[in-house]
Computed example of a mutant assay.
Amino acid sequence: MPSGSRPAGTGRLVTGVTWAVLLLGLWLWGHEAAEGFGGASGPTTGDMAAVGRPLRVELPPAHDPIAAAEPRRVEVPSLGIAAPVVGRGLDASGAIDPPPFEMPHTVGWFGPGTRPGAAGAALLVGHVDTDARPAVFYGLSAARPGEKVRITRSDGSVAEFTIDDVQVHPRDDFDPSKVYGPRDPRRAELRLITCGGTFDRAAGTYTANVVVSAYLTATETPEGS
């Protein structure tokens, strides 16, 4: 667990979570005209190492996408993650603007993109740690296929996703289309993104990103609806 002064921690929060999304603005610019946001991509393959992919894990069938609604809370029960979600846009550099460092236990959702539960890939980002303690997505790399991600939405419904893939994407070999694009454009998908690898002090960022992919498998409607 890193330690040090508050200024060092502040820089770590800002650069650590955002480096992998620095290309998002350019990727969106190149794909919106040709395919619309979230154009289809193939399965994540290549040099990206799987964190965990147990054999013989039977995954449930995909649920049809549901009406769009903004996320309010994310839970990963198997990891003890339960956090509020706030909408974020792109900053001046073209990265997703994460929650401020004063809010390390809040998750940022790329608001101009897909809403969780709608067709496409919704993007959620969170800090892995601060200079002094773990942050909201500190344990994200321990996620495994078959585990659940629950998103409470602004209409009171809960969209439940099943994790089907956990990948580590090295900074030097990062393909944004394989992270941000849906595996199947007919499905409602989710990406949970945080820092991975080691912290490169010279570069002021982490050497990799952990990306957890999931797809919609169940929904819960508000009582009385």
Rank of each mutant, 00 (worst) to 15 (best):
T205G: 06
K178Y: 01
S78P: 03
P185F: 03
V136A: 08
A83T: 04
I151T: 09
G87Q: 08
V86A: 13
Q167S: 06
G38H: 02
G197M: 06
L55S: 13
T205D: 09
V74G: 00
L28G: 01
G117V: 04
K148C: 14
D64S: 15
I66P: 05
S93C: 05
P54R: 07
G126R: 01
G196Q: 04
V21M: 10
V179M: 09
R186A: 13
H127V: 04
L216A: 09
W29M: 10
G46H: 07
L192K: 07
D131R: 15
A49M: 10
G4D: 07
G204R: 03
V179R: 01
A95S: 12
V128I: 13
F101D: 13
W29Y: 08
E220D: 10
D172T: 13
S141F: 10
V212Q: 02
T221H: 14
G146C: 12
F199A: 06
G196N: 06
P134Q: 05
A8I: 04
G156T: 01
D165V: 02
P7S: 10
H63T: 14
A40R: 04
E32Q: 14
P71S: 09
G38V: 00
V57M: 12
P7G: 04
G4R: 09
P170K: 09
G42V: 00
D200E: 11
D164C: 07
L216M: 09
E35R: 15
A82R: 05
P61V: 12
